[in-house]
């Protein structure tokens, strides 16, 4: 028995000549694989590099020269121009505070629900969870006209509250899904011990459960942040005045004004994606984790 095992394991080493030939082919094979992966990486990243290039060019350079040429004389003025001429600063600030508020609300409300569903026994918990899960399947466009009419009736059209409420609600199902996996896998002993010690449910939630779930809370917060920062339809539909527009919608209208000024358009787009890229640079592991967790559960 053991003889057979050793025999099998050593077989490849016996024929030394074949082994070296094999390593030559496997080296070539790996080289080919790296080539494929690298080409794919270039396709994924080069459009963005090109964007940065043309944001620093003037029109003569964009129109006259190769798309692969570096900016001859970087036109930093493009950035100054778009930041000072339009409302980008306002849009930027709106995106920040609306995103922060929506993320906070989603994460705390979803934590409440997940806590009630996984840590308490009640008849309707399955139904409530089901409502949230089905909510994930509903296309938001089907709700758009009734929502528009609703906000119009209650005076929330062109009011940032309509954006915060909508973003919070539509991100609840995914957030609960991610939290649920974590809560279920997490031992309940600590919370049970706190009950024994006579802690109230509120204290357990705020002082035991929430601190324990910080890793998954940060994951969901980052995923929510990206979704809210990039959200387009709600802002485009419910907000009409410049003072409440977010960066995503603001730049879309703004870019339209420039029509043929490629440098200005490029600079605007770069400004809008830099915060997301910076977040990714520092928190890529968290983002990868959140994206994977959210999808596979669906």
């Amino acid at each position: 028995m053991s003889e057979l095992a050793t025999d099998r394991r050593t077989t490849p080493n016996l024929s030394a000549g074949e082994g070296s030939k094999k390593s030559y082919w496997s080296k070539l094979g790996y080289g080919l694989l790296y080539l494929i992966l690298s080409i794919f990486a270039v396709i994924q990243i080069y459009p963005l590099i090109w964007l940065v290039f043309f944001s620093l060019k003037n029109n003569q350079e964009v129109f006259g020269m190769s798309p692969f040429s570096l900016p001859q004389d970087p036109q930093w003025g493009n950035y100054v121009k778009v930041w000072t001429q339009g409302n980008i600063g306002v849009y930027f600030f709106n995106s920040v505070w609306m995103t922060v508020l929506s993320v906070f609300l989603t994460v705390i409300l979803a934590s409440f629900v997940t806590f009630a569903i996984t840590r308490m026994h009640w008849k309707l918990s399955g139904l409530v969870l089901g409502l949230f899960m089905v909510g994930y399947m509903i296309p938001l466009h089907s709700t758009l006209i009734p929502l528009f009419n609703f906000y119009n009736t209650v005076g929330l059209i062109d009011n940032p509250l309509s954006i915060i409420l909508s973003q919070t609600t539509f991100n609840l199902p995914l957030t609960i899904m991610i939290l649920l996996g974590f809560y279920k896998a997490f031992p309940r002993e600590i919370e049970e011990a706190a009950v024994m010690d006579g802690c109230s449910v509120h204290r357990i939630f705020f002082q035991v459960t929430l601190p324990m779930t910080i890793p998954v809370l940060s994951t969901t917060a980052i995923i929510n942040m990206i979704y809210n920062w990039n959200e387009f339809v709600f802002v485009n539909t419910f907000i009409s005045s410049d003072q409440w527009k977010t960066l995503t919608v603001g730049i879309n209208n703004f870019v339209g004004q420039y029509l043929t000024d490629w440098g200005a358009i490029g600079a605007t787009l770069v400004i809008s994606i830099v915060p997301i890229l910076l977040t990714f640079l520092f928190l890529s592991n968290k983002i990868v984790e959140g994206m994977a967790a959210g999808s596979v559960k669906g």
Partner: peptide
């Protein structure tokens, strides 16, 4: 893997 993911993080508008 991380390079490939970058476009997914950008807004559809951008």
């Amino acid at each position: 893997r991380k390079i490939y993911l970058i476009p997914m993080l950008l807004s559809s508008v951008a």
